[in-house]
Amino acid sequence: MIRVVVADDEALLRAGIVRLVEAAPDLQVVGQAADGAAAVRLVRQERPDVLLLDMQMPVMDGLDATLAVRREHPETAVVVLTSYLTDDYVLPALRAGAAGYLLKDSRPDELHQGVRAAVAGDAILSPAVAQHLLKAAGDDVTGRRAKARRDVARLAPKERDVVEALADGLSNAEIAARLFLAESTVKAYLASAMAKLGTTNRTQTAIVAHEAALH
């Protein structure tokens, strides 16, 4: 059973999200929070597998809550579920360590898949978020592209191939098939690449790849 904490400051929406999450037989809501600070406290108390949270909340917003949870409890994956598709939230949340970014108009099955993917170490983005991410990551803002290219240059050829395939949205199994490698070898190359890039999840790694124009 995947244990989930839901954080949203709107009570009716929060109740609806809880019902949607628990409609899946393998997902269980173990706590609810109305602000980011309460969400961090619940994560500390319940040690859930996933924190599902909104971005704009009182006391502590979703971005600060993401940073706090990833710093204090890295075993808990963070999935954003929000109405906000803006530069103020998308890339900052993903760079802060969010494993996924979903919009509230997502289908129930997309929500369930997003929670499961986060636990599996993968990531899922709403289609509109993916398009926004590609555009934002492609902009050479404050030299990020140059830095990303320097970081990628430190990768071994096979590590680079794995990261490029990851940026194409492939799973580990699909990467293994593309590169004619064992899935365990893909995982090893990806872990080594992430250590060199200073990233902590697949989404952050894909962002670096897009910024370096590997994709």
Score class of each variant (00 low, 15 high):
4 V>N: 05
6 V>M: 01
6 V>F: 01
9 D>F: 13
10 E>T: 15
12 L>D: 12
13 L>I: 12
13 L>T: 11
16 G>H: 07
17 I>W: 06
17 I>F: 07
20 L>C: 13
20 L>I: 13
23 A>T: 08
24 A>E: 10
24 A>V: 08
24 A>W: 09
27 L>D: 02
29 V>N: 03
29 V>L: 05
30 V>I: 09
31 G>E: 02
35 D>I: 10
38 A>P: 08
39 A>W: 01
42 L>S: 05
49 D>W: 08
49 D>K: 06
50 V>N: 00
51 L>T: 03
54 D>Y: 07
54 D>G: 05
55 M>F: 09
55 M>K: 02
60 M>E: 09
60 M>I: 05
60 M>N: 08
62 G>Y: 00
66 T>G: 01
68 A>C: 06
73 H>M: 10
74 P>R: 04
80 V>D: 05
82 T>F: 03
82 T>N: 02
83 S>C: 13
84 Y>I: 10
85 L>S: 11
85 L>G: 11
90 V>H: 03
92 P>C: 03
94 L>I: 03
98 A>M: 02
102 L>T: 00
104 K>D: 08
105 D>S: 07
105 D>F: 04
106 S>I: 13
107 R>T: 14
107 R>K: 14
109 D>T: 15
111 L>S: 01
113 Q>N: 10
113 Q>S: 12
114 G>F: 08
115 V>I: 13
117 A>V: 08
123 A>P: 12
126 S>N: 05
127 P>M: 08
129 V>N: 07
132 H>C: 14
135 K>N: 15
138 G>Y: 02
138 G>I: 00
143 G>K: 00
143 G>H: 01
145 R>Q: 11
148 A>N: 01
149 R>C: 06
150 R>E: 13
151 D>S: 14
152 V>W: 00
152 V>C: 01
154 R>G: 11
155 L>W: 12
160 R>C: 09
161 D>P: 06
162 V>M: 04
164 E>S: 14
165 A>S: 12
165 A>H: 09
168 D>C: 14
171 S>F: 07
173 A>P: 12
173 A>T: 14
173 A>G: 14
174 E>N: 10
181 L>S: 07
181 L>A: 07
181 L>F: 07
184 S>V: 15
184 S>P: 10
184 S>M: 14
191 A>C: 10
191 A>D: 12
191 A>S: 10
192 S>I: 04
194 M>E: 12
195 A>D: 12
195 A>R: 14
197 L>T: 04
197 L>W: 01
199 T>R: 00
202 R>N: 11
206 A>I: 06
206 A>K: 09
209 A>Q: 04
209 A>D: 06
211 E>A: 05
212 A>F: 01
213 A>V: 10
213 A>M: 10
